[in-house]
């Protein structure tokens, strides 16, 4: 069993000690429960995700290189999720909020623009198939 996410958000500083002890408690009380370090989980995802990416892209015809690039570029706009989640953090700094809001806007440009322009390109590719 992997007991990973003890908190849906970052604990506030005054919660830290409590958090730490909680972690230990969980680990101790369950005994056989393994606590996977989040960074380790991240590496698992990164490495396996990269392998999937490599496998998917090999053998793509050159005709599709540009749409593939702009389409995958739109997917990299997934940082919009990160930007949104950064908005939920405890209100501490106005600067942090505005930065997150700007990130929401930029990522939206990336996502919306990327998918739409890819669609426009692929429309042209399909057109003369008929």
């Amino acid at each position: 069993m992997i007991n990973l996410f003890l908190h849906p958000r970052a604990p506030y500083p005054d919660e830290i000690s409590e958090t730490a002890s909680h972690v230990h408690e969980v680990a101790a009380s369950t005994g056989d429960t393994m606590l996977l370090n989040p960074m380790m989980l991240g590496f698992y995802l990164l490495v396996l995700g990269s392998f999937i990416g490599f496998e998917l892209i090999t053998k793509v015809p050159p005709t599709l290189h540009t749409p593939l690039m702009s389409g995958s570029n739109a997917i990299s706009g997934i940082s919009i999720v990160g930007a949104l989640l950064a908005m939920v953090l405890p209100p501490g700094s106005d600067l942090a909020k505005w930065l997150a809001l700007s990130a929401v806007m930029l990522a939206t440009i990336n996502v919306v623009g990327g998918f739409m322009v890819t669609d426009r390109m692929l429309q042209m590719f399909n057109r003369k198939g008929k």
Binding site: F5, L6, H7, P8, R9, A10, P11, P38, M39, L41, G42, L45, L46, V47, L48, G49, S50, F51, I52, G53, F54, L56, I57, T58, H65, L68, M69, S72, N73, I75, S76, I78, S79, V81, G82, L85
Partner: peptide
């Protein structure tokens, strides 16, 4: 992810997909 937010998983995987495909190109 290190902030304890599960949303990190989708960023890591999607980013890895794009990163890998970009490297192949």
């Amino acid at each position: 992810l290190m902030d304890g937010n599960i949303g990190g998983t989708i960023l890591i995987v999607s980013g890895a997909l794009v990163g890998a495909s970009g490297l192949i190109l």
